[in-house]
Simulated assay, not measured.
Amino acid sequence: MKHPEKERVDGVAPGDGPQKQLKRMLGKADLRAVPETRRALRELLRHWGRPGRSEIAELLTSELVTNALVHTDRDAELTATVGPSGLRVEVRDDTDRRPRLRVPIADDGTNGRGLLLVQSLADAWGVVMLGAGATGKVVWFELDGGTA
């Protein structure tokens, strides 16, 4: 069942300063969500980080969203939070299959490179298996603003 697209950008003021957040439901196998998510993230990050950081964030987000939509037969949810300490992007899906880093095959076009890009370009990344009564996982990455 496809969920109607939900997008929310909020300003929140936790202890370390103001944050903005983008949340988006991604319908199963709806690859139109990839460029739409990039556009929404670009808007969220319009005044963030040094030049080039936003483009890296868009690329890595595209990879995580594409993986969730292509390699699962389920809906997914994107949460991107940007604040003074940087950006954290999480993509949650309801499958218990852990993503694997793959060495791409030369004749395989562009397939198999997504997590390698995330590993190479993110400041930190990982996978959290939900467990404890919840099914699924969250694949995430973080980027600092690159202002130092």
Rank of each mutant, 00 (worst) to 15 (best):
K28M: 10
G52A: 11
L41G: 01
G17V: 10
P35F: 07
G11S: 15
G136M: 09
L78W: 08
R39V: 12
V118Y: 04
V118S: 04
P35I: 07
E90T: 02
R98T: 12
S120K: 13
R98E: 14
P14Q: 04
P14A: 04
R97D: 14
G83Q: 06
R88L: 07
V91P: 03
H3C: 06
P35E: 04
T81D: 05
R97N: 09
P4A: 12
D16C: 02
V70F: 00
V12P: 02
A148I: 03
S85A: 08
L115I: 08
R42W: 03
M129I: 03
E7C: 05
V138G: 01
E142R: 10
K2Y: 09
W48A: 14
D16G: 01
G133S: 01
H71A: 08
L59P: 00
A134H: 11
V34R: 10
G131F: 03
A134S: 11
P104K: 06
W140H: 14
A134T: 09
L31M: 15
G83Y: 02
D10G: 03
G146T: 10
T110W: 05
T135C: 02
M1S: 14
A124W: 03
E7L: 12
R100A: 13
L22Y: 04
K137E: 01
W140P: 05
L115C: 08
G131A: 13
G133I: 04
L45S: 02
W48D: 06
T110M: 10
A80G: 06
L87F: 08
E36Q: 15
L143F: 05
M25D: 13
N111L: 14
R53M: 10
T37Q: 10
G15E: 13
R92D: 00
R113D: 02
R53E: 09
M25R: 12
N111D: 14
W140D: 04
V82H: 00
A57E: 10
V12M: 12
N111Q: 12
R100F: 02
